[in-house]
Design a protein around this nucleic acid. Structure first.
Lengths: 277, 277
DNA sequence: GCAAATTTGTTCGTATGTATT
DNA sequence: CAATACATACGAACAAATTTG
């Protein structure tokens, strides 16, 4: 029986205390010195155990204060699919706001920052632009209940501007939405979109904005919208922390409404069918 | 100017060497002792730096061997949306196989393990079952190119068995697919499904099966299929490592085919529009 | 197959720095 | 300013895994 290292045993013991409720959400753990005598281990060993728990997201330490059991944020659930012909879905435009108020939360959106630049390769590919082509970029930050929620950047081909859709350059919220605007001005209709869902580590800006550690994964969703000619008309990149966000995609019409409250209940330890080999 | 801690500086130096190509993919880093003299730091400090890089997924250490630059696995891309009326999409049935062969990869699926049990709460909710109701569970493991790829469990209401769909209890692959079978035997038609996409840490079984560390996030996708009465007829839970998997959802008909090879190119460091505050 | 050498893993002790109260 | 608590850094010893002779 290969005995587990001591720091792992200590971490497991504390984990059980947290999951069993002996250590309440938000409660402060004993100090490192106290744990040191409690488990008869050196301070470094205690710290290794706490690092382990921190990596699992069960606790967080604050210098000068102590180590605290993390409070599980009620995860925010977004329905990403919607009428393909509208701008809805995925935290864009009106449907984002309604989904949020439905869940009794307070959404905010910063005014967009607008730039013109040669986009990164993964955007070039998706917009089917040549290497040196420029694109208009509209960047926004979203908050829910004053908690940083998502960073969003939309890219449009520079063509749209030269053909008359100059409002894309205005650094203000487009009121009926950019899709409606592009339809009116250029006759470009959205027939659908493709979401490419990835998960990765946050970069430093994202860590700062979301106030998350480097090891908290984030969703990165590339949404490519297509027009009536099956040409990409927009790529929207949304980044949000994966620990407090869940995505819903409905395929097929006329599905029942998802219940936001109920189904987000996540059991930490339920019997899984993959126990045996 | 708050100077960064030494282990962070060392980690950054090595990170730049990796990203700049001085340390090739799969190459072995100098030993801890060598790094110790190279950076004039203690072995523990070197180890802290390496831990940092390991947390970022840039390197991995093997006891007795050394520390190696990780080789980026070509991420596997799955189109999750498909004809809502068929069984396709999300690594179920035929479409899973075709998507995989299209990318010139070799798929495998274990024969299902069948159980009858009271399902965990999140399944009860989704199948709209009372607390004590049982369900049939079919569990499978999937490999691609001999690499563990996903763990999948489908839950069906026990009703289906008593009403005649007894083949669900047979521990063998359903050849035309369970959806086709249920339609034929019970007249139950699938009109669509809802995918609930979450990300979390793997449990111990998942760590073993996928051969991943505890800090490699996994996708957990709950797919609820609905029948012509808008009742849930099946819930499929798919778990797969988030670092080597990407999901695609197409909303709207008649979108162009995604290009598997091209668009998976991920730039480690491209200019992001969220640099300033 | 065994033993030695190499390399990482764990644990201790100690000292000093930094953030918060 | 002082006390408290976590963060960083050093050195040392032994254990465990792997490769090599």
């Amino acid at each position: 029986m290969a005995q587990q290292p001591m720091y792992q045993q200590i971490a497991d013991t504390i984990r059980r205390q947290i999951e069993g409720g002996e250590l309440a959400r938000g409660a402060r753990l004993p100090t490192e010195l106290e744990l040191r005598s409690a488990y008869n281990a050196s301070r470094n060993t205690i710290r290794d155990a706490i690092k382990r728990l921190a990596a699992l997201g069960l606790v967080e330490t604050r210098p000068g204060q102590g180590t605290f059991v993390t409070v599980n944020v009620d995860p925010f659930v977004t329905t990403m699919s919607a009428d393909p012909r509208s701008a809805a879905g995925g935290g864009e435009g009106p449907s984002y706001l309604s989904a949020v108020s439905e869940a009794h939360r307070k959404p905010e959106t910063t005014t967009p920052r607008v730039e013109v630049q040669i986009p990164p390769p993964e955007i070039q590919h998706r917009l089917r632009l040549p290497d040196d082509a420029q694109a208009v970029l509209r960047h926004q930050r979203r908050l829910i209940d004053d908690i940083p929620w998502s960073l969003q950047t939309s890219y449009y081909p520079m063509d749209f501007i030269t053909k008359g859709a100059t409002d894309l350059l205005i650094a203000q919220d487009m009121q009926p939405g950019t899709i409606t605007y592009l339809n009116k001005v250029l006759g470009v209709r959205q027939i659908g979109y493709r979401d490419w869902v990835t998960v990765r580590q946050p970069n430093e800006n994202e860590q700062r904005f979301f106030n998350i550690a480097h090891d908290t994964a984030v969703f990165e969703i590339f949404r490519t919208a297509f027009d009536q000619n099956k040409s990409p008309m927009r790529v929207t990149v949304t980044v949000c922390p994966a620990d407090r966000n869940q995505l819903i995609y409905d395929i097929g019409d006329d599905l029942p409404d998802p219940k936001y409250g109920e189904e987000t209940v996540r059991e930490e330890t339920h019997r899984k069918p993959d126990e045996s080999d």
